[in-house]
């Protein structure tokens, strides 16, 4: 019981401190710029591009797809920086030197970003309603919230995996940016998956977001939770796959770093 309580405390402290540590240099205007204005302008750009391609009637398709894709801002950039920050700030040796439960340490890094990511998606959907006429009148709101939660978790799981990559490369922003923009194409946020070539569809279904975006569109169009349950289960499966792949890499990097004495460079 005591071990459980210790682990939960560790999870929570790691969660809060890594988030504060990452944002300690931020001012409200930076948060406003990166978490509110940037997603809004991205949402508008791709929605207008979509309207230009297929007409105003299809605006909802692009609004929903790009609003859900905003989960990747926190999921990829935020989580990666939380994991990689230990290397850049020189705290990685201390982290690897503690007897703390690694799983709690690792997954704790993503927790607040899931909450933050959900907030980002909700703000984006709000912009969609206010500025682009998104109709939520047929939406089962609890089901939509659950969809956003699961999608944000799966995107953060990808962030955890990429965070591990940031422990062995100096060019993590290159990888992050490429993955973030690739999700705009391959997740179905802007192009119906059915319209993509077969090899692209195969990639799409191996990525987070794809099923979440599809589930969100279905729920907003009036479907019930039971009807999108298979999509959400699939998205959860993707989350587990990426999350544990990241954890496995994290443990391997720790062992290699300790064996080679290369904690800062791995």
């Amino acid at each position: 019981m005591k071990a459980l309580s210790n682990n939960l405390r560790l999870f929570w402290q790691g969660t809060v401190l890594s988030y504060i540590g990452m944002f300690h240099w931020l001012r409200p205007q930076t948060y406003l710029a990166s978490k509110i204005l940037m997603p809004l302008s991205q949402l508008l750009f791709f929605t207008f591009l979509g309207i230009s391609a297929t007409g105003a009637d299809s605006a909802d398709f692009y609004v929903i797809g790009n609003a859900i894709q905003i989960a990747a801002v926190s999921g990829i950039y935020g989580v990666t920086m939380s994991i990689g920050g230990d290397r850049w700030n020189g705290t990685l040796p201390y982290l690897f030197g503690t007897p703390a439960n690694r799983m709690m340490l690792f997954f704790g890094r993503a927790f607040i970003h899931v909450i933050d990511g959900m907030l980002g998606v909700l703000i984006a959907l709000m912009w969609g309603v206010v500025l682009l006429g998104l109709d939520l009148s047929h939406t089962d709101l609890p089901a939509l919230l659950l969809t956003i939660l699961i999608t944000t978790i799966s995107t953060s799981a990808l962030g955890l995996l990429m965070g591990c990559i940031s422990l062995i490369t100096t060019n993590v922003m290159f990888v992050n940016n490429t993955v973030y923009f690739s999700l705009l194409i391959f997740s179905g946020a802007n192009i119906p998956i059915a319209n993509l070539p077969a090899w692209v569809r195969a990639i799409s279904y191996g990525l987070p977001l794809t099923r979440g975006v599809a589930a969100a569109r279905a729920i907003i169009s009036g479907m019930e939770l039971a009807q999108v349950a298979p999509l959400l289960l699939g998205e959860m499966g993707i989350a587990l796959l990426y999350g544990f792949a990241g954890y496995w890499l994290f443990r391997i990097f720790e062992q290699v770093a300790k064996r080679r004495g290369s904690l800062e460079t791995v």
Binding site: R27, Q29, T30, A33, S34, L37, M38, S41, Q42
Partner: peptide
């Protein structure tokens, strides 16, 4: 600080 937010507009 608004640099990132200036790209898409």
């Amino acid at each position: 600080q608004f640099q990132n937010a200036m790209e898409f507009p």
